[in-house]
Write a protein that binds this DNA or RNA. Sequence first.
RNA 1: GCGCGGUUAGCUCAGUUGGUAGAGCAUCUCAUUGACGUUGAGAGGGUCAGAGGUUCGAGUCCUCUAUCGCGCACCA
Length: 715
Amino acid sequence: MNDRLSKPYNPSETEGRIYKLWEESGYFSPDNAGNDTVDNFAILMPPTNANGSLHAGHSLVLTIEDVIVRYKRMAGHKTLWLPGLDHAGFETQVVYEKKLEKEGRSRFELKPDELYSEILNFTLENSKVIKSQIRSMGASCDWSREKFTLDKDIVEIVYSTFKRLSDDNLLYRGKKIVSWCPKHRTSFSDLEINDEERIDTLYYLKYGPFTIATARPETKFGDKYVVVHPSDNRYSKFKHGDKIELEWINGPITATVIKDDAIDMEFGTGAMTITPWHDVADFEIALRHNLEREQIIDESGRLLPVAGEFAGMKIAEARPKIVERLKEKGLLEKIDSDYKHVVRTCYKCGSIIEPQIRSQWFIKMKSLAQEALRKIQSMEVEFIPQHYEKISIHWLENIIDWNISRQIVWGIPIPAKICSLCGEGFVDLEDKITKCEKCGGNVEKDNDTFDTWFSSGQWPFASLGYPSGADFKEFYPTQVLETAGDIIFFWVTRMIMLGLYVTGKVPFKTVYLHGMVLDAKAQKMSKSKGNVINPLDLTAKFGTDALRMALIVGNTPGTSLALSEDKIKAYKHFANKIWNATRFVLSNTENFIYESNPTIVKRDDEILRAMSETLTDITSDMENFRFYMAGEKLYHYFWHTFADIIIEESKAVLSGGNEQEIKSRKWTLIEIEINMLKALHPFMPFITEEIWSFMPHQAKSKMLIAERWFENKKV
RNA sequence: GCGCGGUUAGCUCAGUUGGUAGAGCAUCUCAUUGACGUUGAGAGGGUCAGAGGUUCGAGUCCUCUAUCGCGCACCA
């Protein structure tokens, strides 16, 4: 018997060695798929944040996708799993800004191109780490096709889509109110905002003859419109457009009465003043009545000169002082300190979003969404679990225009010119435009970058080399997209829309969405709770195969998974079981010739039929994305049928049976061992490949990774 | 407010088209140096959140209620 097999299984000694053998074999590439493939199968790895390190979520993605890919490869498909790294625009910039902060530096002191190259170096350096960690999970992706979202060819495709959207009148430069984070000094799309319920103070302020309620007295300096509902009898003596002189925070002002249906008569006093520059609803009222808009708060969240002596203060600092002033002036009528409302915050830093009016690039989403809806409703793309279909439909039906401009340097620069006179923007891929095409004014380069999801939304066709690349022709559209359910709007629906728009095809047939990985108590992992599980600690302790099984079994699509060490330990025991059962099989079949047409006794025939049924069942689970079930059935069959019953029974057969029974049983043991190794390989690739190398030569022709999924043996 | 889920054994969860409630872990009893103690044999443990309905038959389908979670949209 092999020396290694005679000792306990040692994952840490085995895994690196096996992975190297796979990589050198070339089997990760569809180009070496062999001549017996049935058709093509492609899946793209969700581009991994190049500067992050492997967390539990990654280990789940990599495991599920590797299970799919290894199965499909063995089942005879020419299989491509394309690995990708993401520059992860804002995410990475935030990480880098924290690093700068620690060094006592600030992004705002650096020239944009210097900052860009610093982050690029940082990212490229860190990407080595994440790539080796992806390998450590056993991911059998084709590294020769690795793509990065900032690769030149990817950027070119992103640019041509931008141009095409503009040519098709689906892109516009809008001076609209956008969600703005004063800490990060960038705008966001509606998806990067969190809604937080808070208890705050509601101030009732005397505004001439009116009393208005506000939670944000610090924005009120420039308010010169008081708005009431047209049918509110309390204010019927005021007409739309009436001018009123009144004393306000910093002195007398002239206010104008506006009547608008948007006012809720039940709220507060039914009268409010508006701050169109910093509030979405106010902005819309101002738009309807063509009212003046004045900026009160600057881009870093400080009050502007309009605030008089409060100018330059941050909101949090200014508010109590302004309230004090209002009180002194007798303008503060009452305070409701138990006011429950929703505050919008930056999803990254929790800063309160200060809406700002800015010129940004927007994509008109309506028609793109309608095409996507049509394809989803006609089942051209299928969701697993199915209820995500409803969620997507709901979102697509209520879609709003997408702000793709970000005021950060780390990203793909927007290839456009902006007129410094009239603010109009022009897409300019060749850097040719020198004068505003509208007013003749001078133009400047757009300093903004794309929302990172604008480029990742094009990943399927971009990474495959649209429009003329060989891989695009061969593998697009792909078969499966596998990713986390919580990025369905950020990424999945946008890939469907942009894929359809650019290529006319939905980029994938099946969307498989997994849930979150939680800790053993089903709590969300977070640094502050200190319950973050590092998958690499787990693989070191229990072996990668054990972690993979723990991530797969009991994990139904779309639902989150509680990951406990006990569970992983159980699969480490399972690995041990496989190892020792193999030891039994091989030590009892030494020098036995594994023929192709053996004579099988009745009992073994029963055993083999039952195994075959189990494998047929498991194959059906694999085809239908029920990996949790396939994994559990394999575990169960191997342990409680093969080991507990068949092997136990074999001890008596091998010592007391007749020659034919012994021969038949030895053949049967090897046959089951071979089929189990194949069936387990997608789940537990390392130990099965290692054992495969010990199998008698006549039972195999190549590495297990390249073997064909079990055939229906006629027994 | 609108939408989407969950509620099944002590814990984490399965349960495919309706047909006698399952797994892993944990607990308890017994066995044994065997391929494996990272073991084997067995046991206990559930009004399937509640109520009503459809059905010969409901954990599964329908309605309502409770409760937990998530998403979206919101009025100062």
